[in-house]
Design a protein around this nucleic acid. Structure first.
Lengths: 131, 131
DNA sequence: ATTATAATTCGCCATTTGGCAAATGTCAAT
DNA sequence: ATTGACATTTGCCAAATGGCGAATTATAAT
């Protein structure tokens, strides 16, 4: 989302698919990265280096390049896993967005869409005023 | 080759395909990375962070992921982008949501995701306060 | 409520990164 | 050989990373 983005993974370090959200300690154990560091990464207080990112990718269920992209280290439109999911193929929904959002309950998905609509109409009227 | 490999690019920073071997200064100018730093990277005295790597990829004629792989930050993609564990496959994304969001620019999609993350963490702390 | 246990956050700090400026090196043209 | 114009390397240093252990907080179990 940002251009000079560094590896901000705020919030996506753990909120994981499936049933089991790893604890920092578990992730630390399996990845070899200290739990304290992981904690700070999660809160956006540290920006993980590539090697750290690499160590936690698999444990989190991401392909390496996928996580790198999420972190802003690779630009989104690379070879990517784009059309992996038939059905969403209509517009061009970013696969990572699809993946993350897909983990939320459907009501949440709809609410998110509603918020977007509100924001757009807000933006529109603001644009009108400042003209 | 190496297991705990960091981003060693010794020797490949400049000797480039194509015709033109860039000078460090030229590469510095176009990539925004200081020439001195590039020099040390080339000699293996510094290990470029992901953001540095990203800045010099295109100027050097590499795809980003290509250079990341060369640097040892990404493992050479063997199984490619397979769906390994079907258990990972996202809970499903509502097709309507997918369609609507898919019409937005990717940055907007990402922003939406960011907002969702913020809301979730907000909800969490509110829940904590009114405990 | 109390205690036991596991998880997260914080303080501290050694190491590394990466930029700036000065020093050094290279080479063609005088 | 000397100068000038670049290129590369080095010294130095501010900022960031990431680990360790202690303090704090959350979660269970009595």
């Amino acid at each position: 989302m940002d251009n000079d983005n560094r590896g901000n993974l705020g919030g996506i370090v753990r909120q994981q698919r499936v049933t089991v959200p790893l604890t920092l300690q578990q992730l630390a154990a399996v990845s070899g990265v200290s739990a304290s560091h992981l904690g700070r990464i999660e809160k956006g207080q540290r920006f993980p280096s590539a090697s750290i990112l690499r160590r936690i990718a698999k444990p989190l269920g991401f392909d390496e390049d996928e996580l790198f992209t999420l972190a802003g280290y690779l630009s989104p439109q690379l070879p990517s896993i784009a059309e992996k999911n038939p059905g969403y193929s209509n517009g061009r929904l970013d696969p990572y967005v699809a993946r993350m959002l897909g983990q939320e309950p459907v009501e949440v998905q709809h609410t998110v869409l509603g918020i977007l609509t509100i924001l757009k109409s807000l933006a529109k009227s603001v644009a009108k005023e400042t003209r």
